[in-house]
């Protein structure tokens, strides 16, 4: 299930296959020794120009255990052709808004999410702004060209 595990700048990090992320997350929460009761953060990274990355996107889950005081970063690489990951909202409700943000900013779909819609941008917004091929000064139809 785990492809790779290492310590990165003092933070334990594991790389997990995309298909296994939900099972892995459930296990991490249930295991009494690990006891990851908090999903601190969930976000995406777009590695468009990185030659050494096989897949374009990476979704990072940042877990913390309030009782055992340890952290874990889970990385899942997501190819552009199949930009979809299983949702973990059932494991941590915190994932609800975070996954909406990743969808909004990167266009990665979270399968089984109860309410996957844009969160920071408006519904009419075109594109996903944190993708590397979205220019930072790109105009939107509702806003119109710069006069």
């Amino acid at each position: 299930m785990v492809i790779e595990a290492f310590v990165n700048h003092g933070e334990a990090t594991v790389v997990v296959k995309k298909e296994n992320v939900l099972v892995f997350a459930q296990g991490l929460k249930k295991d009494p020794a690990l006891d990851f009761d908090m999903l601190i953060d969930l976000f995406g990274v777009d590695y468009l120009h990185w030659e050494d990355k096989a897949d374009r996107f990476e979704v990072v889950y940042h877990l913390y255990s309030s009782r055992a005081n340890h952290r874990l970063f889970i990385k899942v690489s997501v190819p552009e052709s199949d930009a979809a990951v299983d949702t973990v909202t059932g494991v941590w409700p915190a994932a609800d808004w975070y996954e909406r943000e990743v969808w909004d900013m990167f266009g990665i779909v979270f399968r089984g999410h109860p309410n996957l819609k844009r969160i920071l941008m408006y519904e009419e917004f075109r594109g996903h702004p944190l993708r590397k091929d979205y220019a930072y000064n790109q105009r939107q139809p509702l806003i119109g060209p710069r006069n």
């Binding site: 009761d37 601190i40 953060d41 309030s66 409700p93 915190a94």
Partner: peptide, 19 residues
């Protein structure tokens, strides 16, 4: 609930967790 939602800071500490 506060832990499950990933809440931290004074908001979490008001529930008794000391993170």
């Amino acid at each position: 609930d506060a832990l499950a939602y990933g809440i931290t800071g004074p908001f979490l500490r008001s529930t008794g967790a000391d993170y």
